[in-house]
Nucleic acid binder design. Structure first.
Lengths: 151, 151
DNA sequence: TAGCAAGTCTATAAAATTTGTAGATTAAAT
DNA sequence: ATTTAATCTACAAATTTTATAGACTTGCTA
């Protein structure tokens, strides 16, 4: 399970992806539209900005916008920023590696090699899922709505 | 990331898988061997027992043992018992389904369909990874040790 | 049947993490 | 100058995770 924070982040990013290259969007606007506590969202967006995903502009006419195109914002990138490690355990994490305090010898840990396989499978999905996929799903679900309203 | 509890559970199950059909193993023995707080482990094993994975025997000569063969104890089964939902969000969980309180219409949630794909990929791995795979990894790592000690 | 061995149950609590709030501050635009 | 909107600091409530203590039950064996 991802955290609420991560879910909020992905939803906010979806909104910003829809408006990519169309000027800044207000925090309050995103908060309202996606039912996210505004102050909480502030911290999330700031975090994404400090990690190169978003760009911000203060003052009137300001707001937040994507710094990179939607197809380059992978779920793995977002989740690492918001939730930390993606791997099932620190001992098999690529970005947040750390020793498990309960393990003796890491090299021969049979659990570890299985966890590593799991991590790889997971990463294959998350590296290749981006905001562009969310937008595509969005437009597809709208198409379904349209056609069903015709029948 | 899985919880420590889940990691403890998997490690304990590995020990029990090694002794499958060879009589009961003491909680204290597993706790010592895997460096798991004994009282904590007790609760974990009890949980696994109450969910049909383990079998227990009280009194002298007692202990815990697998109720089903290692190749039938999938990671998905264990993780559901110990950590709950495997899906990235409740709204796409198969065993723990629940509505996301922050979502409006679930049917057209573009995030949801992407999360569902993620869940499927994840489940494909976890359903097909069992204690037997851990045992196999164990014996393979021992083989590597043997051959390296020859050189 | 006494006594020991081992799992079971209930209650609690410390620690860590997650989620959320409040208010002052800084930067940009007009 | 004033207004707008993001930024920073601090805190706090709520929840989850991790762990401990001790009494209780069951089964074995002498």
């Amino acid at each position: 399970m991802i955290s609420k924070k991560a879910k909020y982040a992905l939803k906010a990013l979806k909104v910003l992806a829809e408006k990519y290259a169309k000027g800044p969007v207000l925090i309050s606007e995103i908060a309202m539209q996606e039912r996210i506590p505004k102050k909480f969202l502030e911290a999330i967006l700031l975090d994404l900005r400090n990690n190169g995903v978003l760009q911000s502009q203060k003052g009137k006419g300001g707001g937040y916008m994507l710094r990179i195109p939607p197809e380059e914002v992978s779920f793995s990138k977002v989740l690492r920023i918001i939730d930390g490690p993606i791997a099932p355990a620190l001992c098999v994490s690529m970005f947040f590696y750390g020793k498990c305090d309960d393990c003796k010898e890491e090299e021969t840990c049979s659990l570890r090699s299985v966890l590593a396989k799991w991590r790889d499978a997971n990463l294959a999905v998350l590296d290749n899922t981006t905001l562009a996929d969310v937008l595509k799903a969005e437009s597809e679900s709208r198409m379904n709505l349209d056609s069903s309203s015709v029948n």
